[in-house]
């Protein structure tokens, strides 16, 4: 059960690992937004995508993620990509098309599918970069910091972040428990791998009920332990983990901001490099 390694924190000592989680979270958000920009021409779109992909690939190299790992995590997406392609192809469109035995395959359909696939791949890559280079708990702190302004409109930001960090803490424990209960029920003849639908449902029930009961008991004991150690959700607390803002964080953010600004400018001015160079695709 422990080998669900997708996007799991890998303790390297890279530039990205050393960045403040807030920097990484903000940059991720900015990059995610950039991925969804749509420029004035198809050629321009693909050009910008190419630039972004090179940048993201560089980030992957820095944080020691292999392309293989990325493709592994994309494996589950193939079905979805195929599905998207079919939907797009079947959608009525306009503009030039290929005629395949009387079937109109519009160029736009192909482009649209490609856009979605490229965006998806980049989003997954970016998320992966963030989660492999940042400890879950640091991420929680960054999130709490980011959501901090919401406190003033009575959003329980601290509680939310405490819940996330406790959930992260107990995921391995609950996985272990799941494995244990599955083994115990297997010893009573439950087959979790095959069987008719009816048997499958029974198998799952025999796992879920004990799991719930133990999780409820755990949460009660955990609440007691927290309270006994003086935890008061509404009270002031100090913080052991301090995030360290360094020069490299400022510089990184400035860089991302310039990138973002540049993109916005291109977007607003409908700048088209290819049109300027007289290339029309």
């Amino acid at each position: 059960m422990k080998n669900i390694a997708l996007g799991r924190y890998v303790p390297y000592d890279s530039f990205l690992h050393r960045l403040d989680p807030r920097t990484k979270l903000l940059s991720l958000i900015a990059l995610m937004v950039m991925i969804f920009f749509k420029f004035s021409s198809t050629a321009m779109n693909f050009f910008i995508y190419a630039l972004l992909m090179i940048f993201i690939y560089a980030l992957m190299r820095i944080s020691h993620i292999k392309l293989k790992t990325l493709f592994k995590s994309l494996k589950a997406m193939w079905v979805m990509i195929l599905f998207l392609l079919i939907i797009n192809v079947l959608m009525p469109s306009t503009g030039p098309y290929f005629d395949i035995f009387g079937f109109k395959l519009y160029h736009n359909a192909i482009y649209n599918t490609l856009y979605i696939v490229i965006r998806l791949v980049m989003m997954i890559a970016l998320t992966m970069i963030l989660t492999t280079s940042t400890k879950p708990l640091d991420l929680t702190y960054a999130l709490e910091w980011l959501l901090h302004p919401l406190k003033y409109i009575k959003v329980p930001v601290h509680e939310i972040s405490m819940i996330i960090s406790l959930a992260l803490r107990f995921i391995p424990t609950l996985l272990e428990e799941t494995e244990r209960i599955m083994k115990a029920q297997s010893s009573r003849g439950v087959d979790f791998e095959q069987g008719k639908l009816k048997d499958k449902i029974r198998a799952i029930v025999s796992l879920i009920i004990p799991l719930f009961i133990s999780a409820i008991q755990r949460s009660e004991e955990l609440a007691n332990a927290m309270e006994a150690r003086g935890y008061d959700p509404s009270g002031q607390r100090t913080r052991y983990r301090k995030m360290q803002w360094q020069m490299k964080d400022t510089l990184s953010l400035v860089f991302i901001a310039i990138l973002f600004g540049g993109m916005i400018t291109l977007l607003i001015t409908s700048f088209d490099l290819f049109l300027m160079m007289g290339i029309v695709l």
Binding site: K135, P136, L137, S165, L166, L168, R169, Q217, R218, E221, L222, A225, M226, R229, G230, Y231, D232, G235, Q236, R237, T238, R239, Y240, R241, K242
Partner: peptide, 23 residues
């Protein structure tokens, strides 16, 4: 069920944080 922090260090710190011990 009484191990609250994500590491040993954080767990010992949990009570100190509640007590508002300076970082």
């Amino acid at each position: 069920n009484q191990f609250i922090g994500s590491t040993v260090r954080d767990d010992i710190a949990f009570g100190l944080e509640n007590r508002r011990i300076p970082q």
